[in-house]
Structures are given as structure tokens and as C-alpha cells.
């Protein structure tokens, strides 16, 4: 038997295996999987280049000692371990949760109230919708700088109104100079800026609820509160969850309001994670540690994102 003849069965076996793989792929990925891959390739490349690579690099840097202008030095989980026991970091985590849940809770209530008012028969509804959207539309930096002036003890308009015009207080309040009022102030500004997003989203959801449901409920003798509880809330449930989760992520990562108003002060009372990250990155110029601060809360946020994605997919299916 010649060598060529001996190779034939092996080649046939290889061809057979290749065909089997192709068949398997076709079964799993569908008959047009080659074409599908071709179509997906550009976006896959973009995601890899713009999301996966920077994220992977950030994770790598968070496990290094990286100073400005110097190459990173691998330290493993040292940065994360150190942060876990760092009192300033712990305070920033607690403050971030207070800031986030305080803001989101009130935004939810105000947003719902805004949507209910705008669905009722009020005059100039379009005008009021526009007015209520202004905080959401205005650039955050501009809003925060205005509030910095509004809250000023001596020169701010808030104390002026409370003390001089309405005479509600004998003397002004140091809005940004006491831990309690400073945290309340930054939460207040975040609420002012964020509640229109809740309101407008709920409004869109409420408009999609068929009027017949309300009519039927009214015929059955449901009170306004019962109609709200049993018709409105179920009707906007998915929107409500999505808006709350999105706002939680945004608020948790909010930097501008706290940085401009208090820079994390007084005495660290309003220090939240994004500002702490910034301080470590640009104040201390320890980039590896700063990225570790930013990534530390990622698992918690990832859980929120997973829940959010689940609801968004469910919303699309329904």
C-alpha cells in the first residue's frame, strides 16, 4: 500500500470530524451562523475595544501600585485588603448609601406626585411639564454652583429668605458647614435635579394605562387611593423598577454635586465614593488604589444591573 493510500482514511476521518463540528455549530447557533458571526463581528470588536479592554485594564491596574508617570507594580489584592480596613473608605461607603437611598427614596415620592398631578385635569399641563423638567435639563455643574451660592451662610439667598424676609429663624443655618445639614443639602440638590426623570417616566407609563380600567374600577366603587394601588401601580410597575434601579446607579456614581458643594467636607461628613476616588486619583495621585476604590462596589452595582437587565428584557417580551 502506498503512503498516499494509507493517508486517505485519516483524511476522510478528519473531514468527517470537521463536518460533525460544522453540523454541531449549525445545530447550536442556527443554519446561518457564519453569516451571523460576520454581522456580529464589528460590534463585537467595538465592545472589546471600548468596553472589555478598558475594563480589564482597570481591573489589572487596581491590583497594582501605580503612581503618575511610573510603570505599575503588581501587588495583587493588597489595595482591596487595605481599603477594607480603611476608616475613611468605610465612611465613604456608609455616606454613599445614605446619599443614594436618601435621594432615590424622595425622588420616587416626588416623581410619582409630579406624574399624578400632570395626568390630572390641570390647566397649562404642557407648560407645567416643561417647568418641572428644567432641573433635569440644566447642566449639573451650573445647578450645583447656583446651590453653592444659595446655601452660603452670609451671602446665600436661602438664609436671607428664612431670616430676613419670612422671619422664620432668628439666625441663619450653616447649610454646608454642619455634617447633618451638609448631607441633607447635597441630598436635596440631587433630589431637585433627579425627580423630573422619575416624574416624566411615570407620566409616560400612566398615559399607557387604558382609561377603561379606571372607569371599571370607579364603577366597582374603588376610591382614588384604591385605583392608584390596584390600577396605576401595577400598570407602571416595570417602569417604576427600571427608573429606581437606573437612578440608584446614577446617584451612587454622582460626583459633581458633592464635589462642588462640599468636596466631601466638613470633616469628611459628605465624603462619598466617587469623590473619594477622585481624591485618591488626583490628590494622592495613586492611580491603582483609586481604581480599586471605584471597583470595590462593583459587585453590588452589578447585582443592581443584572436585576435591571432582567426587568428590561421582561418588559420587552411583554
Amino acid at each position: 500500500m502506498s503512503i498516499q493510500a494509507a493517508q486517505l482514511p485519516a483524511k476522510a476521518a478528519l473531514d468527517g470530524r470537521g463536518r460533525a463540528v460544522a453540523v454541531g455549530l449549525r445545530r447550536v447557533l442556527g443554519p446561518d451562523y457564519r453569516m451571523g458571526m460576520l454581522f456580529v463581528a464589528p460590534i463585537l470588536l467595538l465592545v472589546l475595544a471600548l468596553v472589555a479592554y478598558p475594563f480589564g485594564y482597570a481591573v489589572y491596574l487596581s491590583m497594582t501600585r501605580k503612581y503618575v508617570g511610573l510603570p505599575p507594580v503588581w501587588v495583587g489584592f493588597d489595595n482591596y485588603v487595605k481599603l477594607t480596613w480603611d476608616g475613611f473608605f468605610q465612611r465613604a461607603v456608609v455616606n454613599s448609601f445614605i446619599f443614594t437611598f436618601g435621594s432615590v427614596g424622595v425622588k420616587l415620592v416626588l416623581g410619582m406626585a409630579m406624574a399624578l398631578v400632570l395626568t390630572s385635569q390641570i390647566r397649562w399641563r404642557g407648560f407645567w411639564t416643561g417647568v418641572l423638567l428644567i432641573p433635569w435639563v440644566a447642566p449639573t455643574v451650573v445647578s450645583a454652583l447656583n446651590f453653592l451660592w444659595i446655601f452660603d451662610y452670609s451671602l446665600g439667598v436661602l438664609n436671607y429668605l428664612l431670616v430676613r424676609v419670612f422671619r422664620l429663624l432668628p439666625q441663619g443655618i450653616g447649610w454646608l458647614s454642619e455634617p447633618g445639614t451638609a448631607m441633607a443639602s447635597v441630598i436635596g440638590v440631587n433630589i431637585w435635579r433627579g425627580f423630573p426623570f422619575f416624574g416624566i417616566s411615570f407620566l409616560a407609563g400612566m398615559k399607557a394605562i387604558p382609561g377603561e380600567l379606571y372607569e371599571a374600577a370607579a364603577v366597582d366603587g374603588a376610591t382614588a387611593l384604591q385605583r392608584f394601588r390596584h390600577v396605576t401601580v401595577p400598570g407602571i410597575k416595570n417602569i417604576l423598577i427600571i427608573v429606581v434601579l437606573l437612578s440608584t446607579i446614577w446617584t451612587f456614581n454622582d460626583f459633581q454635586i458633592v464635589y462642588i458643594l462640599t468636596k466631601g467636607g466638613p470633616g469628611g461628613a459628605t465624603q462619598v465614593l466617587p469623590v473619594f476616588t477622585y481624591e485618591i486619583a488626583f490628590g494622592a495621585q495613586r492611580l491603582g488604589e483609586a481604581i480599586a476604590v471605584a471597583l470595590y462596589m462593583l459587585p453590588a452595582l452589578a447585582a443592581v444591573i443584572i436585576v435591571l437587565a432582567r426587568y428590561m428584557r421582561r418588559g420587552r417580551r411583554s
Binding site: 451671602l155 439666625q171 447649610w175 468636596k263
Partner: peptide, 21 residues
């Protein structure tokens, strides 16, 4: 010191001084 001094930024004392406070 003014009661709100712990909330000041770098420009606050400039503004307060020029405002005669």
C-alpha cells in the same frame, strides 16, 4: 468666625471680605 465657615471653599473668604462681613 462666621457660623457657616466650615462650609467655605477657597473663594468664600474673598467674597465675605469684599462684602464687608
Amino acid at each position: 468666625q462666621p457660623p457657616g465657615v466650615m462650609g467655605w471653599t477657597d473663594v468664600s473668604n474673598n467674597e465675605a471680605y469684599m462684602a464687608g462681613k
